[in-house]
Amino acid sequence: MTKTVNNKAWVFVLPVFVMVAFNAIIPLMTVVNFSVQETFGDNVFFWAGVTWFEQVLRSDRFHAALGRQVAFSAIVLAIEIPLGLAIALAMPRKGIGVSICLVLMALPLLIPWNVVGAMWNILALPDIGLLGKAINALGIEYNYTRQPYAAWFTMVLMDVWHWTSLVVLLCYAGLVSIPDAYYQAAKVDGARAWAVFRYIQLPKLRHVLTIAILLRFMDSFMIYTEAVVLTGGGPGNATTFLSIDLVKTALGQFDLGPAAAMSIVYFLIILFLSWLFYTLMMRNVES
């Protein structure tokens, strides 16, 4: 009896392929189709060529939203990755403390994104919110609904609160998987804590950190729900990120053509930056 080994693999691959086709490839194709046409609804489309791409790429509004999105991702990555790593290093490795810390760390990740936005919206209100009232009580004028800097501060704080846990859990998993032999060798050599971190823990965490940075970059670059619930893109356009601007264009103004062109540019930027991060970090691992 002859048997082809690979045939069984198709049974597992095909459902995934169909699923990806329906939730990613077909919508992406539709967006590409929309990006070269104009519509006023009722499934009637008019050819527009590359007009929407030219309009989007030359639009100050798009440049500003993209700049804000890049700045936001850069800020949260700069805070969350070192902070997550530091917390993971400080967490206990044995005893009841491990379970307590892990549960505490997992809590923010279990809260739905719109609830996180609503929680921080209320928490940071200057008149009734605990955080807002406390900051104002210190003599610092703080009102995230009126001051762009306060809105950014609140947005970054909310994201750090919500997502640093993910970095912590990933790093902690990476740290506990380092065999004890490395630490024992370091102890024999009389290595200090910094040397252990620099030459044992950090190199062993590279893969985990690559995943953490990629996940946090992609998520922060696509932030929408929390941001729109917290500030709605305001005050003015101070926190209107690309994702918020995109939804405003597509659903608020019903400009499906420009929104589709914007989506494609947005998608290509994310694709390029993710590829760049991944390639650079894996190159470091290889070297």
Partner: peptide
């Protein structure tokens, strides 16, 4: 154009060719 199952995808010849 039309009322086919794919009409909502708003296909055009250039994008199909792509």
């Amino acid at each position: 154009e039309g009322t086919s199952l794919l009409s909502w995808m708003a296909w055009t010849w250039p994008t199909a060719a792509f």
